[in-house]
Design a protein around this nucleic acid. Structure first.
Length: 548
RNA sequence: GCGCCUGUAGCUCAGUUGGAUAGAGCGUCGGUCUACGAAACCGAAGGUCACAGGUUCGAAUCCUGUCAGGCGCGCCA
């Protein structure tokens, strides 16, 4: 028994009715069951008749009338349907009875905290790789967006039943590490950093720390190694403060050291997707749709970043993951086709790889976009942002827009502790419910949800019905958000729940409500709303406070 | 030049397996505390869904083209 049953039941009934009209054949695409734009149009509506009109060769409204008759038969003996109407171009609108709502609430209560969708039929082992920022400096707000997004996507995928792991790929090999090392070494000896080197206060601080530790600035390997280790420590600390915990960290350098890169190259050569030209080893990625072939091993014998990344992705596959999700920055989107090609060249379906492209975060203050931190003059670090607006607001404002669009993070709005600030608005609703339930007394609310309460004689208020319908949307919202990798949908949904709750609270007295069973029924509804808000915020990694 | 992404209210954005009069937040203007949290609620103003064609009962959504913006097109990572 899952919380979706009430909706699923209706959907099945519509489906069945449509099937009957077509002599048993299923309708394609599936008929919709959605909440119509206006309350006069019923509680739910379906477009089934419009879909059936063409194959049946009849007018949509005629089909709709037949469908209504069929639905009456389908749901007739029960008391759930108030009435059915044909409207507009051929919509079938369903008006549901209080009994239907009461039953829906009971089922939600039975579900307890398991409000999400039923586990999907074919769960996958998924590896989500995200952040993977170069270990040459502290995490910036951009990395923070990757972290918030990747983490929320993992939570969503888990919520629908996948087996998911979070991974951070550490690019601790290659040219940028050498530049990083020479930059620190230069700061240690007081000389000029290299042309394309790293600057900023943190480099000076690292230099000082290494000097104290007695690291020899002439030994670049040691300087780089220690520098990376210290940066990684800091990155971990920042992520942990942000509430993001990776299950695994894979080092690029380690891939080289254990021969994974050579092995991957050998496998590619064996598959004869490579060739030599101008002294370099090339991967024929054009065979798989890339615009040009790519170098795997340079003429000087050094493997490219791509070579290591092929080895890395091969390693992911060998660990048994059936789906690989890479969260990439917008400036890396051109990289995706080669990676797909490489995977295809390894005789694996390239579709196991999914690349999600993240756009930038702009920090907005005083109506102006800025990326610079005031103090350090460097890019705004995630830590500075967290100092300023806190973890919950930071996560919210990084998640409430699609990953596909740049985010303008308005610091003044994010700092505000009022309903202007959507994250406080949602959290406030949760705290307000908690307060109401406290008022009712310990355990009274739990009891209201679970006990067999007498059915109230008074009819449900419109605001109560709206709230119930909203709560019933939760499983579909989670499914949809997970399928589209779109946690921002959950932000919008949680605002809607909060808004519907406030409307309910305005119209309906809870504690001390007159009428037998009314108080109990409304307390149960409060409890259900509270659980749903907590679950929604939980998917975003945001806390649901009992008091504010 | 080629490729990917984007163009919806004053601002920032939701809204794609095609559905009814296109939504939210902020901002602006105006109202509401003798019921359980006013950190709230209600209302108003605000739109040629970039533009032009096409597909059909129906298009912000699908197709084609144009314009504008972002990003990418390394033997960098």
């Amino acid at each position: 028994m899952t919380a979706t049953d009430s909706i699923a039941e209706l959907r099945t009934a519509v489906d069945q009715a449509a099937r009957t009209l077509r002599g048993g054949e299923p309708t394609s695409p599936e008929p919709s069951l959605e909440r119509p734009p206006k309350p006069e149009l019923g509680d739910y509506s379906s477009n089934a008749a419009m879909l059936l009109a063409a194959p049946l060769g009849e007018s949509p409204r005629d089909v709709a009338a037949q469908l209504c008759a069929e639905l009456e038969r389908e749901l007739g003996p029960s008391d759930s349907i108030g009435r059915l109407e044909v409207a507009g171009p051929g919509f079938v609108n369903l008006f549901l009875s209080d009994a239907w709502y009461r039953r829906a609430m009971e089922r939600l209560g039975e579900a307890g905290d398991a409000l999400g969708p039923a586990p999907i039929d074919s769960p996958e082992r998924v590896l989500v790789e995200f952040v993977s920022a170069n270990p040459t400096g502290p995490l910036h707000v951009g990395g923070g967006r990757h972290a918030a997004y990747g983490d929320a996507v993992v939570r969503l995928l888990e919520a629908v039943g996948h087996d998911v792991q979070r991974e951070f790929y550490v690019n601790d090999a290659g040219g940028q590490i050498e530049r990083f090392a020479s930059s620190i070494a230069a700061a240690m000896t007081g000389s000029e950093p290299p042309e394309d080197g790293y600057r900023g206060d943190y480099v000076t601080e690292l230099a000082e720390r290494l000097r104290v530790e007695g690291v020899d600035p002439a030994k670049l390997d040691a300087v780089g190694g220690r520098g990376v280790a210290l940066i990684l420590e800091e990155v971990r600390a920042t992520l942990s403060r942000f509430g993001v915990k990776f299950d695994s960290w894979v080092s690029e350098r380690d891939l080289y050291e254990r021969g994974a890169v050579d092995a991957a190259l050998a496998q590619l050569e064996q598959g004869s997707h490579t060739y030599r030209s101008d002294g370099a080893l090339w991967l024929r990625t054009t065979e798989f749709g890339d615009d040009k072939d790519r170098v795997l091993v340079r003429a000087d014998g050094e493997p490219t970043y791509l070579a290591a990344d092929v080895a890395y992705h091969l390693d992911k596959l060998e660990r048994g993951f059936g789906r690989l999700i890479d969260v990439l920055g917008a400036d890396h989107h051109g990289y995706a086709p080669r990676l797909r090609s490489a995977i295809a060249a390894l005789d694996t379906d390239a579709d196991v790889l999914e690349t999600l492209i993240m756009r930038l975060v702009h920090i907005v203050e005083d109506g102006e976009r800025t990326q610079m931190a005031k103090r350090s003059g460097d890019f705004v670090s995630l830590d500075e942002l967290l100092d300023d607006i806190g973890v919950d607001a930071a996560r919210w404002f990084m998640l409430w827009r699609s990953h596909d669009t740049t985010v303008d993070l308005d610091l003044e709005l994010a700092r505000r502790e009022s309903s202007d600030n959507p994250v406080y608005y949602v959290q406030y609703a949760h705290a307000r419910i908690a307060s109401i339930l406290r008022k009712a007394g310990e355990g009274a609310a739990e009891e209201a949800v679970t006990a067999d309460a007498p059915t109230p004689e008074t009819a449900l208020e419109p605001a109560e019905k709206e709230l119930v319908k909203r709560l019933l949307e939760f499983p579909d919202e989670v499914r949809e958000a997970a399928a589209r990798r779109g946690p921002h949908r959950i932000c919008a949904y949680s605002m809607a729940v909060a808004s519907d709750f406030h409307a309910f609270y305005r119209d309906c007295q809870v504690v001390g409500a007159p009428g037998e069973g009314v108080e109990q029924s409304r307390m149960a509804l409060c409890m259900l709303a509270k659980r749903t808000i907590a679950a929604s915020l939980g998917l975003l990694g945001i806390s649901a406070p009992e008091r504010m």
